[in-house]
Design a protein around this nucleic acid. Structure first.
Lengths: 233, 233
DNA sequence: CTTGTCGAATTGTTCAACGATCCTTACGTT
DNA sequence: AACGTAAGGATCGTTGAACAATTCGACAAG
């Protein structure tokens, strides 16, 4: 009987993992999801103003609800809310890009310096493989998203939900900038090999080497980005 | 005449620094400020429900505006927004506390490992002095806020606005927990000396020592907190 | 070319209303 | 005693309309 009870308890405990999915749905949040996707895919361009009237009508929600969605995205730094002037898709300055890479060095650097869990290694390996596969297929858009997943997986090694969330937001912000890269191949291709190399270092437990390798990696990515970005300010 | 023009230009350029203060005031944000203060001072206790009707009436704003404020604080993790049930002052679990300290180790650890700027050192020195002064005056509440300023100043060394902001949020979240400490003196006193010691190490450029010292520091703070916190769950 | 003024357009905020959801209580069933 | 159901009240989610406040561009005056 003890067995029976404990197995039930186990099942219930497992179930608790899905609890997160229950509460998740309010119109405002769903609207925010839609807008977030549109922004990160480049449908709304940085600097563009999002009219309350036009969008609320287009999505069939009231202005008040739309404004709640705007607030959410504003806090994620995807939208810029200027009083009495409306909300605009965020325009990142070169300093913003530099700051984002400063944060990446801290977040990813800390992750790389600690022995990764088996789970984390698996996630990282998957992302590397996906990137290589996409590169072989000349699908550079897919390479880009796989690269992003790679770095997200890296941060996972910190075992911290809050750092994961911070990284998620950071990468969403960075996507605002990726669209300025005229040729996505030039930007994403060089890093596919490096991802593989970084993964190998991590797997072999050569953490110090991984850390310095990562620093060089991020330096170059930042410079590539800023060089392509600085002109049109 | 050139001189005249350029001096005017300079004056105008200076003025641009104050631009940030212009936009900053909407009713919703001011309401959020009020509520944030009330929460961090313990007026609203963790777990308490904040009624839209009661608070909107008390503050003399509409429910819609209040909801915008709630969204803001929800994103700062100070409020817990449960669909159709209202907003509650966030209740941190022991895992939350552990995670917060994980993030602190990353943020403060990275800061301590890089040579601090003169400005940063100054901010840190001020916080240390304030804490010592308050400790001498037996004002343990003030010691607590000075300690918080100390750690905020530490992170300043990262030279990253986003990390500063992350630290600000993190500390606001931690304040939710500080109120469970029955005797603030026991919690804050041991760290006044350590702040001084950490400052000395930084000033002398003994960064590695500072880093390991900080790790021990954070470990102890975390355990103190969790020990006082775990029981009442 | 700068400054003042006016009006259209948009946002900020409020209000009232209605449906949807949750909580509580009570009642009946097994 | 544990569980399923039902009813009612309270609160939230969302809407639509309304008005004040603010911005912005145009146009006239100096």
């Amino acid at each position: 009987m003890d067995d029976y009870l404990s197995s039930v308890d186990d099942a219930v405990a497992d179930l608790a993992q899905d609890r997160g999915r229950l509460g998740r749905s309010s119109t405002a949040e769903r609207v925010a999801d839609i807008l977030r996707d549109r922004i990160s895919e480049g449908f709304f361009e940085p600097g563009q103003r999002l009219s309350e009237e036009a969008i609320s009508e287009a999505l069939g929600v009231s202005r008040n609800t739309l404004r709640e969605a705007f607030r959410l995205l504003g806090h994620e730094r995807l939208l810029d809310h200027r009083l009495n002037r409306g909300v605009f898709v965020r325009v990142l300055s070169a300093e913003d890009v530099a700051d984002l890479y400063r944060v990446r060095r801290v977040l990813e650097g800390a992750a790389v310096r600690r022995p990764p869990s088996k789970q984390a290694l698996e996630l990282i390996a998957e992302a590397v493989a996906d990137a290589e596969r996409a590169a072989a297929a000349d699908d550079w858009q897919a390479v880009g998203t796989a690269n992003i997943r790679f770095h997200q997986a890296l941060v996972t090694a910190n075992q911290s939900p809050r750092l994961d969330e911070a990284m998620r937001q950071l990468l969403a912000e960075l996507r605002l900038v990726f669209h300025v890269m005229a040729n996505p191949r030039d930007f994403h291709e060089p890093f596919v090999q490096r991802n593989r190399r970084l993964f190998d270092l991590l797997q072999d437990g050569r953490l110090d080497e991984a850390a310095t390798f990562l620093d060089g990696y991020l330096d170059e990515a930042e410079q590539l980005l800023i060089r392509a970005y600085e002109p049109n300010r």
